[in-house]
Write a protein that binds this DNA or RNA. Structure first.
Lengths: 191, 191
DNA sequence: TCCGTTATGTACTCTGTAGTACACAATTGG
DNA sequence: CCAATTGTGTACTACAGAGTACATAACGGA
């Protein structure tokens, strides 16, 4: 009973993600989000709470999306190196492609000093931990594919560092070919 | 003639850098900077212009500092690999050490969506270009130290990617030993 | 000592924006 | 068709913070 919602919350979260990605947390105004999504402020507050809570919802949703995709790509059969290369390569169009070099919402949030809120930090740390854990698990499972002395844990972390660096630099516009060349060079560490 | 300044502009720029680093551009209020530096707002405006101009001054100063240091470290004699390792290692305490893991002002600014101002972008791009150029020059000069097929330009860029990744992750608190391990692993690419 | 000039401090204006009060619309159940 | 309930839109409030007007203080020069 009662009046039903006139909008799909997921759609609003998509729009909000775009705005947060483009403007950053502070500079993204709720007026901009309501204008872009077409719904009015009271509806937004009723559905998601205040700005901070909305951002947290958007961020968690973003994290879940990337993690789900990473799980799929990293679970594929064949050499671990190919899976990880594909995982890294998958970010190239996502962050420096046609949609514009907007970088990664999570990294932007992590480097945004105004967001030292505990919940945001926790969400980001959990996300990074889980990503790295996926890499580590795959490298450990396939450690027989590598030379003696290969360190799966360290290499997983190094791949995370490279990933983070690429996503950060992508924000200021990277050349896709160069990004791919870096990925290929780093992949020689998986031997 | 006329009344002299009661403060050293460089001191104020230091203080402003701290605040911008801790809070980010948007969230750093001028009230906070004036409070921390002890000077009043009109003096600040008279000396540096508006908030944007102040930030640009701070950023340029920061860039100059890092570039000067990089020039010195990368000019040292001996194997290029050692110089570059030392350069990378130099950032560890700077960004994840006792002063707290606050990351890099330039990277924070680059990932801050609210700062798509042309001048800021230009300053950051110029900085990155010059850093990478220093690495490239050194690797090219010492290319005889490396195996046949070694690509100095690509490797310089890869080192930049790793540097950026480390600085970005340092922002959320890295373990110094792990950072060093990553650096050492990546240094095996310089062979 | 007086004047011109430049810095300083107080106290303000103005604007952008987060958050909300309230009247109204839309729906379900009786 | 009515009532209860929940979403919606307009219009507001509250407030933080960027930028400034103005009176005053500190200096050098004549």
């Amino acid at each position: 009973m009662a009046r039903p919602r006139s909008f799909d919350p997921d759609d609003v979260l998509e729009v909000a993600r775009e705005v947060f990605l483009r403007k950053g947390y502070q500079a993204a105004s709720l007026d901009e989000i309501t204008a872009a999504s077409g719904i009015a402020k009271p509806s937004l507050y009723a559905a998601f709470g205040d700005k901070h809570a909305l951002f947290l919802r958007v961020l968690d949703r973003y994290h879940d999306g990337i993690l789900g995709w990473a799980e799929r790509v990293l679970a594929q059969p064949g050499p671990a190196r190919d899976a990880i290369r594909q995982w890294l390569t998958g970010f190239v169009p996502y962050c420096s492609g046609a949609k514009g070099a907007r970088g990664c919402l999570s990294i932007n949030a992590a480097t945004d000093g105004s967001l030292d809120q505990a919940e945001i930090r926790k969400s980001i740390e959990r996300y990074n931990r889980r990503l790295e854990q996926l890499l580590r698990a795959r490298l450990n499972a396939d450690r027989a594919q590598f030379k003696k002395g290969f360190d799966p844990d360290l290499t997983a972390h190094t791949v995370m560092v490279v990933h983070t660096g690429l996503m950060t630099l992508a924000h200021q516009g990277s050349d896709a070919k160069q990004v791919q060349a870096v990925i290929d060079q780093v992949m020689t560490l998986l031997a």
